[in-house]
Amino acid sequence: MADKVPITLTVNGTKHSVHVEPRTLLVQFLREHLSLTGTHVGCDTSQCGACTVHLDGMAVKSCTMFAVQADGSSVTTIEGIGEIGHLHPLQQGFWEMHGLQCGFCTPGMIMSAADLLQHNAKPSEAEIRHALEGNFCRCTGYHNIVRAVQHASGQIQNQAQAADD
């Protein structure tokens, strides 16, 4: 067996120092070692985006990197961006606009959309659709996902406006 490799990474604000097999994918590390099962696996060819998490603030597909590559990094998963009572505007948007049905793609969808809104707070419909190119949903036809992102975008701007006032 290949030697285990020591890594240290911060997940949702908690630091973990562990030894992992090199072939452990980041998503498997999150799901199986940390029991953070909100991050899902929907394909094995890096297309569906269900596994999307943030690595040092950027959306990445956690099925397409090894945990060892995240050594020294900070990872945020769906469990880390908000909770009931303190939902992220995107979590709220998906709930308000019925942006999910079976819920399986939802965590990845939210993490991708969060990356979009970080650098484009007011995306157009076309920009939203383009930005979600790497996330598949089989339930919603994307109709309400687009509306959910628009809702969140509006919320974020309102919050920014309120902060300015």
């Binding site: 909100g38 469990e79 009931i84 939902l87 998906f94 709930w95 819920g103 965590p107």
Partner: peptide, 11 residues
Amino acid sequence: DPRFITGTGNY
């Protein structure tokens, strides 16, 4: 929805 949007669904 709350369990799905917070990653606490149980698949």
